[in-house]
């Protein structure tokens, strides 16, 4: 099924990720609230990829699980990685000047959420939202 890859190198790319996720979410048949949730989660993670991961990419697909359709997005970067994932997921924790809601918020807004991160190598965050 349709796969879309969006590079994330600047603020405009974060906007592009949002537009592309919206397009796929509509195509997958998600309702307005679900679309809004997954686009918001994607916006948070794309910004992390940019701000902390020093840039990377978002790879997104429409996915099918039995009768259910949804959208899955993988954010990848080759940045510094996350040493303490538990801490990074805590609401309010930020190592920058954010609000510390991106990771925890994205997890709440999606049906699937996974982080794989290796310090010094990079970070991969996967989310999915089903219809």
């Amino acid at each position: 099924m349709a796969r879309s890859t969006v590079p994330i190198r600047n603020g405009e790319d974060v906007v592009r990720v949002r537009q592309e996720v919206r397009r796929l979410a509509i195509e997958a048949g998600l309702g307005l609230v679900d679309q809004t949730k997954v686009v918001t989660a994607a916006s948070e993670l794309a910004r992390n990829t940019l701000d902390y991961g020093k840039g990377g990419q978002a790879v997104m697909d429409i996915v099918q699980n039995g009768a259910r359709r949804g959208v899955r997005i993988v954010f990848e970067d080759n940045g510094p990685g996350i040493a303490d994932i538990e801490l990074a997921l805590k609401d309010g924790y930020t190592s920058g000047k954010g609000m510390g809601l991106g990771l925890g918020g994205a997890r709440r807004l999606c049906n699937e959420f996974a982080i794989v991160s290796t310090p010094g190598k990079g970070t991969m965050v996967t989310i999915a939202r089903w219809k």
């Binding site: 307005l32 609230v33 679309q35 809004t36 949730k37 918001t40 948070e44 609401d91 609000m99 809601l101 925890g104 918020g105 709440r108 807004l109």
Partner: peptide
């Protein structure tokens, strides 16, 4: 604020 945005903000924790 759109209703879908308001619902999402609550879950985001903002």
């Amino acid at each position: 604020m759109r209703p879908a945005v308001a619902i999402t903000l609550v879950e985001l924790g903002l």
